[in-house]
């Protein structure tokens, strides 16, 4: 049995597999499949300052090897999360990451302040949601705005701060550098790629929001490329995600430069995927005589 534990920004994870925000709610549903302590951690559903009902349905469409979604950040609000979900989550013996999304920098700061007073393990700043009218990705697409929001939130945040990056940018390495320079402890990447599907009979977009975020196996090569580029540009750790479906994908993402991983869309195909990936990863390490999973990170040998 290899050592699967990893450390990101001072936080120890039993294994590198973290449930990705938006696919896992606040954990209660998947706890009906397996104990959540089998996961390295959980990045909770994105929360906002007050309750949001989200977009009208349909909110999902299948695509070749993936899905589009536009949930629109339906959530009960930061106060309800802290009061009703966090105490239960903290009893599950796994790392709990809050994912926050606001309309303004002030809102992000306010949530960081509130969460800093709790026993949450980490805060992931969602500046990359493509499915809301205000905020979300608008903060995540220029170096200036990423630097500014990271710097401002940093002043209000005493927890390890992870910036979740959008792939809908020209140069993701520069964006990551701005986050690092402004005080981010880590980056997580990639959020979804903006996409669209149209019903050819009705000529209506399948998703009511017209566009949605593309995730699943289809985006995996894009995610690997971006993680590799960012790994070459920053010193802070990367939580890699985007279409990881098999243990081989997990190994590949680590080799590209990720220290930990998030797993999302594959849960809809197989709720047990994170457990299977962890097992496969462990076998791979054992078979190759690698003692710790951390030895894989960033070991790609580029041509």
């Amino acid at each position: 049995m290899a050592d699967l534990s990893v450390k990101v920004a001072g936080v120890s994870f039993n294994n590198p597999l973290i449930a990705a925000s938006g696919t896992f709610g606040f954990g209660r549903e998947y706890n009906e499949f397996y104990p959540l302590e089998k996961l390295g951690g959980i990045s909770c559903k994105g929360i906002t300052p007050t309750r949001r009902d989200g977009n009208p349905p349909p909110r999902i469409a299948e695509t070749p090897s993936g899905i589009l979604n536009a949930v629109g950040l339906q959530n009960p609000g930061v106060d309800a999360f802290i009061k009703e979900d966090l105490p239960w989550l903290k009893q599950q013996n796994t790392v709990i990451i809050a994912n926050t999304a606001g309309n303004t920098i002030e809102e992000y700061c306010m949530m960081a302040e509130k969460l800093s007073e709790t026993d949450i393990d980490m805060i992931e700043l969602n500046i990359s949601c493509p499915n809301v009218k205000n905020g979300g990705v608008q903060f995540g697409t220029s170096c200036e705005s990423v630097g500014q929001i990271t710097g401002e939130v940093r002043k209000h945040c005493t927890k390890p701060l992870v910036i979740k990056l959008s792939p809908n940018v020209t140069d993701i390495a520069s964006i990551a550098k701005s986050a690092e320079a402004a005080g981010a402890d880590a980056v997580s990447m990639i959020n979804t790629l903006t996409g669209m599907r149209i019903d050819i009979n009705s000529r209506r977009p399948i998703i009511r929001n017209n566009t949605g975020g593309l995730s699943g196996a289809a985006v995996f090569p894009v995610a690997v490329r971006m993680v590799w580029q960012v790994a070459n540009a920053v010193k802070i750790p990367i939580i890699g995600m985007g279409g990881i479906t098999t243990w081989q994908d997990a190994v590949e993402m680590l080799i590209a430069g990720a220290t930990a991983l998030q797993i999302g869309t594959v849960l809809f195909t197989d709720p047990y995927a994170p457990l299977k990936i962890t097992e496969g990863l462990n076998s791979f390490l054992d078979e190759n005589g690698i003692k710790s999973v951390t030895e894989l990170t960033g070991t790609v040998k580029p041509w």
Binding site: T23, G25, E29, G54, R59, I60, I67, Q74, F268
Partner: peptide
């Protein structure tokens, strides 16, 4: 999506 109430798509 998930079928169990986690992903919130079937609103």
């Amino acid at each position: 999506g998930c079928g169990v109430g986690a992903c919130l798509v079937c609103a």
